[in-house]
Design a protein around this nucleic acid. Sequence first.
DNA 1: GGGCCCGCAGGG
DNA 2: CCCTGCGGGCCC
Length: 660
Amino acid sequence: MMEDDAKRQLKATNIMANKTQLPCDGDGICMLCKAKPSDLETITCKTCVTPWHVDCLSSPPETLESTLQWDCPDCSSPPEDVPLPPLGNNPLPTTPSSDLVASIRAIEADVSLTDREKAKKRQELLSGKLQSDKDDPDANKEKKKKGDDVLDLLDERLNCSFCMQLPERPVTTPCGHNFCLKCFQKWIGQGKNTCAKCRCVIPSKMASQPRINSTLVVAIRMAKLSKSLVSGGPQKVYHFVHNQNRPDKAYTTDRAQRNGKANAASGKIFVTIPSDHFGPIPAENDPERNQGVLVGECWEDRLECRQWGAHFPHVAGIAGQSNNGAQSVVLSGGYQDDEDHGEWFLYTGSGGRDLSGNKRTSKDQSFDQKFEKSNQALQVSCLKGYPVRVVRSHKEKRSSYAPEKGLRYDGIYRIEKCWRKVGIQGFKVCRYLFVRCDNEPAPWTSDEHGDRPRPLPKISELKKATDITERKGGSSWDFDESDSRWKWSKAPPTSKRPVEAEDSASGKRRKIRQSRNMSVRERLLKEFSCRICREVMSLPITTPCAHNFCKPCLEGVFVGKTFLRERSSGGRALRSQKNVMNCPCCPTDISDFLQNIQVNRELLDVIESLKSKIEEGDASEKLCEEVIDGEEEGRDGSNGNESSSSVETTRKRAKVDDSE
DNA sequence: GGGCCCGCAGGG
DNA sequence: CCCTGCGGGCCC
């Protein structure tokens, strides 16, 4: 009943707003009425060639002639006139957002305020705005409903406008609209270069290399979680942590000529696993945090990634021993033939390259790869069905699944097949089909569960493959139907190496911090804090490089900088020049994006809803926080003798070198 | 962004 | 002990 009411209300708002005019999607289904109109009921825009459902147009063309020369609602008005969040079901007040932005700018300009106070004021302003709709009872009702039920968001507001489902692997356009990666790619594949929602032009880089908005993934997941809490379901906790507390860093030895991490030695290994440990790193091997290495965990660089045991080698992409199997791989775009589909990917072996001249890596292949050394190690893991840890690096530019920054642990995969083929560069390469089999959901999916066994993808290059290796018989790491979990079905291979991390028997180990469930507030701060003001994002925006900031914060960074644009015509010849303005988090030039920043309304909705959830359960959480804060440990600063033996060896070697 | 160079870590 | 290696910093 309530639901019907809500739907009718939404439909009414849609019609009243009159601005919500939507075309047909890629499958010819009207995005407004969801029906599939016949050709006769469809009209095509002469400018953007998009089909529209005539019955759903507020002012359809009247004559046959005007039908042929028809411009759709988007093309008939210049883009800057299109009010940006035009959707009737948008919960924000109809006040132009520029007012809000102006007020926020005023706060920013107030020199009497500290950054923290400014952030607080911004937030107050935002929530005040949302409440100041009292004179409009309907709007208030709508808002109240929203605050009460995150479920609404999941049902309607967040939906991808192609498939009308929650965006799966969401990508965000510069105009602030969210779609499934697949739907978006399908749309682009049809030759479209405008946003399906607002018709803003999508930059070609975003079109060809969309990257998943991981913040929105977390938002959707949290909204789902919050929903299950409301309905009294079991409380699940998803850990998506970033390695914020980095205690012991990599260091530069005496021998190294340069500072920084270019030639640094690894810092302490924090986990108590040997370097030939297979499978996930469990909590019992994480004395530092007692939580283990969790899917989604991120690191700055390879040295840091190593310290947490996800992948030990500092440069190499494959960790493994030819007689024992491979434990982990890194995907970082080092080999052209790699192909990433998230839940499965095709990986290329190492070698085949001329590394003479003191090179560590190279892009040019000059001979065939063979199944030897680490390539053989991967082959062993394939045959035995061992779990392989997978780390993705931001350096892989072609993959939608790569993290925006640094490296990320994406969980366990199995190598289902391996073979050799002639690679892009004309020499033979070893190839591996990796398929995900982890109990935790992947960082890009809003699924609440991990992987289920899935059919193998069809690999066309197998037709031309040689030396095909497949597993025969059972896999060591397998899905246990009775338990619905992936686990060892045979004993894991025994380790042949020592545990690098501090001996737990020494008694000098760090105090173990008990892992605990994160409060909603903590999670909000952790997942949705702006990289600039460090507060929960007000007016979140998503850059084309998939970084999220508060709109005013990002604008603040570039205050006073002028945009120099190419001018095609008129008066004096201006030098064709444009200012490059880099994203605060990566080297992407976002100067075009900065000129027309659009708020990611859908992300904002989720954050606001979750915020209002917090206010409900505030008191109990506060108590919980105080107790835990009181427990905060004092670090052991006592013994300086703990320096690892590797430092000593390095020093010795340095002396030998010097004596020459 | 591309080329170059370096010390480190691990396999064999 | 030698060789390899999907880094990272710096210079251009």
